[in-house]
Structure formats: C-alpha cells, structure tokens
C-alpha cells in the first residue's frame, strides 16, 4: 500500500474538481474493494477523495414511476428498503446474495457498480495481467481459470465482473446518472460496463473524472415473477460461478415480457435481448427456456478450468426461468437451491 493524500470535499462538484486536479486521484466511499486493492498493491492512488459523506446521495426517492437510488445508499439499505423489496425484489435478492452483512453495511451502490474483478492474476502483482498492467499478457487464458468468463472474452482478458447487484440492474434496465467536468449524463446499465477487447484495463465507460451520483430504476420491477439464482463454490460468501437474474411478466401461462441477465460469465453483466425476444409471447415451458439458454450461450467459449460454466449456465438459465415463471423465487435465508 502506497502513501496517499486524502481529502473530504463537501459537494459533488468539489469532489470532481479534486479528482481532476491530480493524476492518480480516486474516489472512495465504502472502500470495501479499493482498500483491499491498495493493500494488495494493485491500486496505488496518489490521492483519495472521500465522497462517502457527500450530502443528498444516500436517499432512495420516487422518480417517474420508478425509484432513484443515490450512489451512497449502502447495499444493506438498498436490499432492505421496503419499496425495493416490494417493487424490485429481484434487486433485493441479488444484493443479499453477495458478500457478507458487514461488507453490505459499508459498500455503496456506486461502489458496487465499480467493483473490480476477482481474477486471481489481477490480484497478484507477482504475475502478469493486462488489466492491471496493460501489455504484460493474460496468464488466465492458459492458467487457473475456474472463475473466468465464457462470453465476450478477448485474447487479452477473460476476467468477469463480480457484482450480483449489477446483474439484477441489467435485467431491470436500470440506468446510471453520472456527473463530471462536462456536466451530467445518463448511461444505460447495459452500456456502463464494457467488454475487455484490447483495453481490458477499462472496466466501464465512466470517465476517470466522472462520478456516479445515482442509479435509476424504471417503473417495471417484475415483483410477481422473478428470481436471482446464484451458483458458487460454497453456500455463502463466494462470488458467482454463474448467476442468473430472470424476470418475467406473465399472461396466464404465456410470457408477455422477459428479462434475462447473467453474472459470473463475462466482463460485464451479460444480458441477451435476442433470448428475451425469443421468449416473448411463448408459453412458459422448459423447451422455450432451453431454446433461450442455447441462444444466450451459442458463442460461449471455455478455457479449460471454466468450460463447465457453459453447461452450468445452460441449466441455471432453465432453472431460473422456471422459478420465475412459477412465481417461486430462489430464497435467500435458506441458501439451498430451490
């Protein structure tokens, strides 16, 4: 961990200026990921701009029939908010399936969007990593890659995005409000994270001097037919090998609208509009779900240690859509798979 200076601005604009003023400056809020990365010497910020106490960003408010979640709303506050639990239970379940209560009490909505991959090599400064040090290579491609991506990979990086929250947000078509030197803008969640391509060092489309101020949820929350199914190597406190956020709007036994997003399989929450379109208007049958799964995974590629994820994802998609259609979401309290 390097020496750094620290400041605590009183307003968003001031925070943006502070980060702009110094190369290597970073925002910090809950610090559940950044502090870890600093201890591992993966991140070496020259200055930390603590936005954790900025006023007005820790509220969940009604907005245009949906909800606007301030960037500083903690994961716990988000998951247990009655409006979220009633109207967007998918989001609540996804958040509660990640990390531990202690971490969720500290971690913020904005920080969760920006958490970095759990790739073993990214975390180990004794090894090469294109994400950490561009151009050094990706040992994961031919190395230990049990937790790595099967969709949207590049030869330069096969890391995954580790968030559960973001998978639900992708399915819910959330968008991210950001502000920066150029003013405010809004980024669809689908466009917020990016694929590695030849720039794996960039996780998102957010500018280095831009700050997340809120996440917007559109009115549709799919509270009747949804599930968040997370498969992992132990029953709690582990990142997803594969997770599936499924949300349906049913019309009797038929699907009026479908949302499907996957975690643990790509550099970003993986949403497949084609698979969703395929399900629209179809009876909610295992055959339909299997077709959707096949479509989602048609370009999937395994790297040895993670090849099993292709079959696991296929089965998980079918299970998740079945749970959603039946209105029997995966419970959180009892971790066993329903």
């Amino acid at each position: 961990m390097n020496r750094f200076s620290y400041s605590r601005p009183g307003a968003v604009s001031e925070a943006v200026r502070a980060v702009q003023a110094e190369a290597g400056a970073k925002f910090i809020a809950g610090g559940t990921n950044l502090v870890d990365l600093m201890k591992y010497d993966v991140e070496r910020p020259r200055r930390l701009v603590d936005v954790g106490a900025l006023p007005g960003l820790d509220r969940i408010e009604e907005q245009a029939g949906g909800l606007r979640i301030g960037a500083l709303v903690t994961n716990s506050a988000l998951a247990y908010d009655p409006r979220i639990q009633e109207r967007y239970p998918l989001l609540s379940r996804a958040v509660l399936s990640g990390a531990s209560p202690q971490l969720r009490n500290a971690a913020t909505t904005g920080g969760n969007l920006l958490q970095r991959t759990r790739c073993y090599y990214f975390y180990d400064t004794g090894t090469p990593c294109n994400k950490r040090e561009p151009g050094t290579g990706c040992p994961a491609v031919n190395g230990v890659n049990r937790i790595h991506a099967i969709l949207g990979t590049s030869e330069h990086c096969i890391a995954t995005h580790p968030s559960d929250m973001c998978v639900a947000l992708a399915a819910l078509e959330a968008s991210v409000e950001v502000t920066g030197p150029g003013g405010d803008r809004r980024i669809a969640l689908a466009d917020f994270h990016r694929l590695p391509g030849d720039q794996p060092e960039r996780d998102s489309t957010l500018g280095a001097d831009e700050i997340v101020t809120a996440v917007q949820l559109p009115p549709k929350g799919f509270p009747a037919n949804y599930t968040y199914l997370k498969l992992r190597d132990r029953q709690s406190y582990a990142f997803a090998l594969v997770s599936v956020a499924a949300a349906l709007e049913m019309d009797g036994g038929s699907i009026r609208e479908a949302r499907l997003a996957l975690g643990g399989v790509a550099h970003k929450p993986w949403r497949d509009p084609q698979a969703e379109a395929l399900l629209r208007g179809r009876p909610a049958t295992r055959e339909a779900f299997a077709e959707a799964a096949a479509l989602v995974l048609k370009d999937a590629r395994g790297y040895g240690g993670n090849t099993f994820k292709i079959e696991l994802a296929r089965r998980a998609i079918i299970r998740a859509l079945s749970q959603a259609a039946a209105g029997t979401p995966q419970p959180i309290a009892d971790k066993h798979i329903a």
């Binding site: 709690s236 406190y237 971790k335």
Partner: peptide
C-alpha cells in the same frame, strides 16, 4: 475469498 473454507451456511 477464493480458497473456499466452509462457512456457516455450509
């Protein structure tokens, strides 16, 4: 985090 000792849920 990545070496998986059993946790209470297991």
């Amino acid at each position: 985090a990545e070496y998986h000792l059993p946790v209470n849920a297991d």
